[in-house]
């Protein structure tokens, strides 16, 4: 019995050695105010743009009139990711930013009408969108997940009926990035609200 007790003590000490090495364990990065603030800025940027599109005329829905927004949003997302990659144990936030970038790529494809009208996306298209990100050119390119290579898509319009869903999704996605960031404040529950 004494031997078992002693063995258990050894196990506890071994476990402590394994998991500590210092005074505490860290499984996820610390809160980063810049990430939080930039994610919020992106949420506002997308929401504001999509609200204005909802109320715009046909001209406003054309890809050529939104290309600048997509370029700017893409740069913002890249900047957010570069910062996130520099932070220790930040895999979750990096993956979330990648998902936002993929959704931007889908929005661009929708605006340029690069997908089939009567068939769902293929697995190859989905893979291409995830790997290549947004195609900010005026053309449809199979390499970026388009159904076929098609030039000069500037006159193509975003389907107005789809805008409320797109807006909800971007709001929720950026909200999820902010929620994950706020959770990293640890222990201070009031700050998570």
């Amino acid at each position: 019995m004494r031997a078992i007790y002693s063995n258990n003590n050894c196990l506890v000490f071994a476990l402590v050695f394994l998991v500590s090495g210092c005074s505490s364990v860290q499984l996820i990065s610390n809160y980063d105010e810049t990430t939080d603030r930039n994610a919020q800025a992106l949420q506002r940027k997308f929401d504001s743009h999509l609200v204005s599109l909802q109320n715009s005329g046909e001209e406003g829905l054309k890809f050529k009139n939104n290309q600048e927004f997509y370029e700017s949003a893409s740069v913002d997302l890249t900047a957010l990711k570069v910062r996130a990659e520099g932070i220790y144990k930040n895999k979750i936030t990096i993956e979330q930013i990648d998902l936002a970038t993929t959704n931007l790529a889908y929005l661009v494809l929708l605006n340029k009408r690069c997908m089939s009208t009567d068939k769902p996306l293929t697995a190859a298209q989905i893979q291409a969108v995830g790997e290549m990100g947004p195609d900010l050119s005026m053309d449809c390119d199979v390499a970026f997940g388009a159904e076929a290579d098609r030039p000069a898509r500037g006159e193509m319009t975003l389907e107005r009926e789809a805008i409320p869903s797109i807006k909800s999704m971007f709001n929720q996605l950026f909200g999820a990035i902010m929620a994950a960031e706020l959770a990293k404040k640890r222990g201070d529950k009031s700050s998570k609200e």
């Binding site: 929708l110 997908m115 009208t117 769902p120 996306l121 789809a162 869903s165 797109i166 999704m169």
Partner: peptide, 11 residues
């Protein structure tokens, strides 16, 4: 379109 719906579902 069905194509657009499938894009929205992926999003």
């Amino acid at each position: 379109s069905e194509g657009s719906a499938s894009v929205l579902l992926e999003m």
